[in-house]
Simulated scan of single mutants.
Amino acid sequence: MSEPFLIGDTMTGGYGKGPDILHGCTIAVEKGEIAVIVGPNGAGKSTAMKAVFGMLNVHSGSVRLDGEDITALSPQDRVIKGMGFVPQVRNIFGSMTVEENLEMGAFIRNDDIKQTMEQVYELFPILRDKRNQAAGELSGGQRQQVAVGRALMTQPKVLMLDEPTAGVSPIVMDELFDRIIEVARTGIPILMVEQNARQALEIADKAYVLVQGTNAHTGTGKELLANPEVRASFLGG
């Protein structure tokens, strides 16, 4: 069997010299897939995502992208290798216009970015309408669209989203999930941490439930939605 396009394999690690938060945790995503990480607060979901992106110390285990071991690379070098990462907070330049934010996303590129920008505007039409407006003046959902669009401007091989629907209304959440599905259909694998577990599992090709930094359940989104233990523990029955 060939291995997944992106895998954080049996990762153990934490922040700085602090205690380990992850304990043999494995998360992976294939091309064109949406993989989601869910679990209770403090389970290590965002920590696992940051470990894959190189933002904390992985003391054992490895991270591999398209067969290449990238465990020792900095986050900046991982972006160059093709990882797009959208953090939960502080993910836009509020004083810059929408279009300037998108241009900033293309900082690693030396080619013409017009076509990619057009693709982002087709995916998020509201951003075209507001392209000359300061990003900080937008609604929460629109700011998230800017953040995802900016990550797409790097032409990533994989897109990582840390709680993309945090703090937005249910209607905006549904819209964001629709756009995320559209991105995945272009072939870009998506690895996503999400608090709205039930809704995330409904769109997930693959899903991981983390508890205390370790894998508690793994399966397809449908399998975990149907799992009585997962339902009772994490989905309210």
Rank of each mutant, 00 (worst) to 15 (best):
M1W: 01
S2D: 14
P4M: 12
F5H: 04
F5N: 04
L6E: 12
I7T: 13
I7L: 08
G8M: 09
D9R: 11
D9A: 11
T10K: 11
T10H: 07
T10W: 00
T12R: 03
T12E: 09
G14Y: 09
K17I: 07
D20N: 15
I21S: 07
T26G: 08
A28W: 02
K31S: 13
K31V: 04
E33I: 00
A35T: 15
V36W: 01
V36Q: 00
I37Q: 06
V38W: 01
P40M: 10
G44F: 03
K45L: 09
S46V: 07
S46R: 06
A48I: 08
A51M: 10
F53H: 07
F53N: 11
G54R: 10
M55W: 02
M55V: 03
N57H: 14
V58N: 08
V58W: 02
H59E: 12
S60I: 03
G61L: 10
R64P: 12
L65I: 14
D66E: 15
T71Q: 13
A72M: 11
Q76P: 00
R78V: 14
R78A: 11
V79L: 13
G82W: 09
F85G: 05
V86I: 05
P87W: 05
P87N: 13
P87H: 08
Q88S: 10
Q88C: 09
R90S: 14
M96S: 07
T97Q: 08
T97G: 13
E100L: 13
E100S: 12
N101V: 12
E103F: 05
E103V: 08
A106I: 10
A106C: 11
F107G: 08
D111G: 06
D112I: 10
D112A: 15
D112H: 10
Q115K: 15
M117Q: 14
E118K: 10
Y121I: 07
L123Q: 01
L127V: 06
N132R: 14
A135R: 02
G136P: 09
G140M: 03
G140A: 06
Q142Y: 03
R143V: 02
V148P: 02
G149V: 11
A151E: 07
T154S: 15
Q155L: 13
V168P: 01
V168W: 00
V168G: 02
S169D: 04
S169A: 14
P170K: 08
P170L: 07
V172S: 02
M173I: 10
D174T: 11
D174W: 01
E175V: 05
E175Y: 05
L176K: 01
F177C: 04
R179C: 01
I181M: 03
R185W: 03
T186I: 01
P189D: 07
I190L: 06
V193S: 12
Q195Y: 03
R198K: 14
R198Y: 09
Q199F: 02
L210T: 04
L210D: 02
V211R: 06
Q212N: 15
T214E: 15
A216F: 14
H217V: 06
G221M: 06
G221D: 08
V230I: 09
F234Y: 15
